[in-house]
Amino acid sequence: MPKILIVGGGYAGFYTAWKLEKQLRKGEAEVTIVDPLPYMTYQPFLPEVAAGEIEARHVIVGLRRHLKKTRIITARVTGIDHANKVATITPDVGEGWEEAYDQIVVTAGAVSRTFPIPGIADNAIGLKTIEEAVAIRDRILTNFDQASNLPPGPD
């Protein structure tokens, strides 16, 4: 049976696997998706999470919950040998291994950009992941709590 390997479980990876599940007949191909996170994030809603308007759980889609026929591996693809059609899979815990494939779809996504402004890489928080949106919200709330204890300013 042909093996289709999808690198990345974000928007493009999730929808690729979802469409393949709908279009492939049973036994036509084995679909595997590899991503270090077991969910896809609706990034356009991250500002609402940072603002506290919606909860973080409403912005993510669990891969296992929606991809019933797809094999899901929570790990990173750390190498692709396309000549031999093999990808190196590295989990956070345990030994890595090589995964053979017939077709590969690389949808690894993006990372937050930092501009060449001194200190931004060390002090700023990106807004590409649910964890970053929650960190921004928590920082804002902490700053408001600290500001509420300051003495009143001049009239």
Score class of each variant (00 low, 15 high):
4 I>K: 06
5 L>Y: 10
6 I>H: 03
6 I>V: 09
7 V>Q: 11
10 G>Y: 05
10 G>D: 08
11 Y>L: 09
11 Y>P: 12
12 A>H: 13
12 A>F: 15
15 Y>V: 02
16 T>G: 04
17 A>G: 13
18 W>N: 11
22 K>R: 15
22 K>W: 15
23 Q>M: 08
24 L>E: 11
25 R>K: 04
28 E>R: 07
29 A>N: 02
31 V>F: 07
32 T>F: 07
33 I>P: 02
33 I>F: 02
33 I>V: 10
37 L>G: 14
39 Y>Q: 02
41 T>S: 02
42 Y>R: 05
42 Y>A: 01
44 P>S: 01
45 F>E: 08
47 P>A: 12
48 E>V: 06
49 V>G: 03
50 A>E: 01
52 G>D: 10
52 G>E: 07
55 E>H: 14
55 E>P: 15
57 R>A: 12
59 V>H: 00
61 V>I: 07
61 V>K: 02
62 G>E: 08
62 G>W: 05
63 L>F: 02
63 L>I: 10
63 L>N: 05
64 R>G: 01
64 R>P: 06
65 R>P: 03
66 H>W: 04
70 T>F: 05
72 I>E: 05
72 I>M: 03
72 I>Q: 03
75 A>N: 04
77 V>H: 03
77 V>Q: 00
79 G>T: 10
79 G>P: 13
80 I>E: 08
80 I>P: 09
81 D>V: 10
84 N>F: 01
85 K>D: 05
86 V>Q: 10
86 V>A: 13
87 A>R: 13
88 T>E: 11
88 T>R: 05
89 I>N: 05
89 I>A: 05
90 T>Q: 13
91 P>E: 03
92 D>A: 11
92 D>E: 13
93 V>W: 00
96 G>H: 12
98 E>D: 15
98 E>Q: 14
99 E>L: 12
99 E>Q: 13
106 V>R: 03
106 V>Q: 02
106 V>E: 00
108 A>V: 07
111 V>Q: 15
111 V>S: 14
112 S>F: 05
117 I>A: 15
118 P>D: 09
121 A>I: 14
122 D>M: 12
122 D>I: 12
123 N>L: 14
125 I>S: 06
126 G>L: 14
128 K>E: 04
129 T>I: 10
131 E>C: 00
133 A>E: 02
134 V>M: 11
135 A>D: 07
135 A>L: 02
136 I>S: 04
137 R>V: 06
139 R>W: 07
140 I>M: 05
140 I>G: 00
141 L>W: 15
145 D>E: 10
146 Q>A: 01
146 Q>Y: 01
150 L>Q: 09
152 P>N: 14
152 P>R: 13
